[in-house]
Amino acid sequence: MSILNADFWIGVGVIAGIYGIFALGLQLNVGLTGLLNLGQAGFMCIGAYAMGMLVVDAGWPILATLPVAIAAAVLAGVLVGLPSLRLRSDYFAIATIAFAEIVRYVLQNAAFAGGNQGIIGYDAEWRDFAAWASDRLAAIGLGEQMQLPLLFSIWLVFALCVAVLRWLRRTPWGRVLTAIREDEDAAAALGKNVLAFKLQSLAIAAALAAIAGFFLALNVTYLYPGEFDPTFTFFGYAVLILGGFASYGGVVLGTIVLWTLIEGLRFLDLPLSSGEVGSLRFVLVGLTLVVLSMARPQGLLGRRAEMQLRQ
């Protein structure tokens, strides 16, 4: 059965993990703070490019670039948030998507980051590590699956992020965020600096996007602007809403379900042309999203009571 191919599903797991980390940030923003951040792909792009440029142009070790990549994305989050967070949520959403598109067009058209040709050759250290890890995995009969080290790394980090975010949610800081989502004015009346909390939420989401970008870069081994178009953010939202509002576990489940669906449909075998099958695949994905949004409005693991997004 070709559909049981291990390489294929390891690859799906890699994609699901990357989108999962990406969508955790959206969950923090949308589900727990009430910020409709549509610019997540832009933050991811900044993180991934920061890593690529530091390795290729400045010769940094790849792991050392991760904190800088995160810092760059966080800085972008603060710079974007400061002026735009005072906008109403729908205007904020459009402003963030505009930011993400500007990032993409600048990287495509400016000379400093390789333009359309992008960045390549930052992954040598990672490949050495992956080869080493594959040798160890070979001892237990898993040496043939070369993407396993990446899969394990991604899901380990994903799990860590979920744990940290869950812990944060129970702290006083997390409770202020929820209060802001429920009633911003009341939170302000209690003396909380609403803007500062929102900024922090956005900054953490940007950091998560940078981590997702780091792993995306390792998966595709080639960075170029086309990878960071708004579609990425939209699918991140699909993960989030599918899994459930205000639930980090929902993100985990949502990304597994969505990507099993999207990628699994590659094995749809019908007596149609490739073009028709390709179209049908996304018709089915779309239908599933519509049906799920109607049949299970709170998402797979969400709670209905937490679903009021303030305008």
Partner: peptide
């Protein structure tokens, strides 16, 4: 948000 998901679908 659910409306957004339905619209994407």
């Amino acid at each position: 948000l659910q409306l957004l998901l339905a619209a994407i679908g």
